[in-house]
Write a protein that binds this DNA or RNA. Structure first.
Lengths: 337, 337
DNA sequence: GTAAGTCACTGAACCGGGTAAGTTGCAGCG
DNA sequence: CGCTGCAACTTACCCGGTTCAGTGACTTAC
């Protein structure tokens, strides 16, 4: 089935291709009457502009790219990315931008993908996640002059826009809450230590613990998977002066930690309080439901998409703080016995 | 930064655009020496063919589309889609096809997206999931002559390729296993009843239960969310002759069911055995870990992508059965007390 | 020795939109 | 009445690849 082109519309309307283009794009140069006639014909024959032709004549590809750099087994279960994606979509769909996805294994591969996408003019910009200190992707993006938005931080990304949430404030709130409940031995199972937001959280965690006079404060690094979450939890709980509360850097590890506690015959929240970072349906799914640091991930994604579209339009965007993270107390936290 | 084109390569190599095109695409028409020279130059200046120009001159868009038609809150937590996506990627990435994603709310909206994508020539084919009986999308795909692969079924999709797994065999195996353990009162919490694979499962479940002489067999419909999973589980467990085993149509509902049982003071697997459909890290995350019907979702996705690429190449593909589903027994199933 | 055939390449026409520059026709104005 | 100015178009070229119909040069065959 031959797909209609502006030439088809032009023939039926008895005008030139150029007039049709002006009419469809709301440009001046055609009368209101002609514009209406052309739009009606376009509607009738179900015209959609060939995106390749449009992209070719200097315009935009009307697509943005996102790479996912996590092993498949954790990608599936972590609600974070899907939440982010649905947030992007809400914004991109409204502007009829497409989202192009690629799963990669390493930051180097990710850079390759950016190079290829940009070279192929397949995308107009990218959304970058899992930002690290001195991230190797940043200089490449700058060199390519590829519009981008970084999620996470705040860190040094030069002229590239950043969206970040106040992780330091959030973890401070969580620790204060646990101390108010009467906890003194608080531990933390963190995400990948290289990631910038992990470092921000660790620093803030240590600071607030010090300021509240807590010692025996320990952060075990993990990698967001259930397996490492379990392992870290076991290490924390078999020690002599085991913590009475653990803060996890994601929900998956928190759920895994809960399972380990149950397996060891400890009661949650009686013997152990648990706080998860990033609230998701997962936290309300288990018994007891997990106290969590909540933020609207979808809104976060939508904001990132908005900033990226601005960057693509050449508008300078800077350092934007996303909506607040707040503590949602549920059944997994209580005063220690 | 000006991105290099074949004209740049042609100038540097002292040949015509056409020769460069032949060289880069492995077409005959240039000598080996010239080809090598051209490839070396392309490599050196980091050339990537403009995908828009390529798509415009009759060739492929080298992209396939996937729409996700689930509410955002369930999309995030269900490992199914991400597993599928990483499977697609493995295959598509190898052929340097891109994956374009769109979240939609209804099948009608999904059809609109297909129409637009196809009209814009943005994609060469689509992967269709969540297939229903007399699915409204099928005739549209046929009318558009948009290459497609349907995941799920088997059902009547006319000439459109299908990939399906033996759900009937799987649920039969699960029921036989539970009966062998000594269970007589087995219930099921199903997914959305409209979906074809739900119907296949329900039919097979009823048949095997009848053939084994079980009565009191009940299937409560739900929607894959934790909330409905909990609700259905509660309804099943507060009844007079409550089941000693429940099979859930996805992992999220199974985990929710586990939480409900724990909340009601029932021991799993002592008082209640639980079987989840679709094994995912989630199943091994909780305590006790859930017995599950496992299949390699990623491989399923890869196979679907392969079939779609075949369909795009004009090769007829038919009705393909994916790898087997097998029962993975874990701690959530045991003989009833 | 010349016709035929092959090889390696060139030139130009496409694909389908966007857009700058040129061309009407008509109203307004002095 | 003629000139300017503007709206409402048309024309023609651009984007960057692909592809097909040539075009020499050189080989082979009778």
């Amino acid at each position: 089935m031959k797909r209609p082109t502006i030439a088809d519309i032009a023939r039926r309307a008895g005008v030139s291709k150029g007039a049709v283009s002006y009419a469809l794009n709301g440009q001046p140069g055609v009368s209101e009457a002609t514009r209406k006639r052309i739009l009606a014909i376009a509607q009738e024959i179900g015209f959609n502009a060939n995106s390749a032709a449009r992209a070719l004549s200097g315009a935009r590809a009307r697509a943005v790219g996102l790479t996912l750099c996590r092993p498949a087994r954790i990608l599936g279960i972590e609600p974070w990315f899907m939440g982010l994606i649905s947030g992007f979509e809400a914004e991109l769909g409204a502007q009829s931008y497409a989202l192009t996805l690629q799963v990669v294994a390493t930051p180097e591969q990710e850079i390759e993908v950016y190079r290829r996408w940009w070279g192929e003019r397949r995308i107009d910009g990218v959304i970058v996640t899992d930002i690290r200190e001195d991230d190797v992707r940043i200089p490449v993006l700058q060199q390519l002059q590829l519009p981008a938005v970084v999620i996470g931080g705040p860190g040094d990304t030069g002229p590239i826009a950043q969206i970040w949430s106040d992780d330091a404030g959030a973890i401070t709130e969580a620790v204060r809450y646990l101390v108010a409940l009467g906890h003194h031995r608080i531990a933390r199972v963190s995400g990948v230590p290289d990631l910038l937001h992990t470092q921000v959280r660790t620093k803030a965690f240590n600071e607030v613990c010090a300021s509240l006079g807590l010692d025996n404060v320990v952060t075990l690094p993990a990698d967001y998977t259930g397996e490492e979450g379990s392992r870290a939890t076991r290490r924390l709980l078999i020690g002599g002066d085991r913590p009475t509360a653990i803060i996890y850097d994601n929900d998956v590890m928190a759920v895994a930690g809960l399972a380990v506690a149950q397996e060891m015959g400890l009661s949650v929240p009686g013997d152990l309080s648990i706080v998860a970072w990033d609230d998701s349906p997962l936290c309300s799914l288990v018994h007891p439901p997990l106290t969590a640091l909540s933020r609207d991930i979808s809104a976060y994604g939508a904001q990132a998409a908005r900033e990226l579209l601005n960057a693509i339009d050449g508008k300078m965007v800077g350092n934007v703080e996303a909506g607040r993270v707040h503590l949602t107390p549920r059944g997994s936290t209580a005063p220690p016995r």
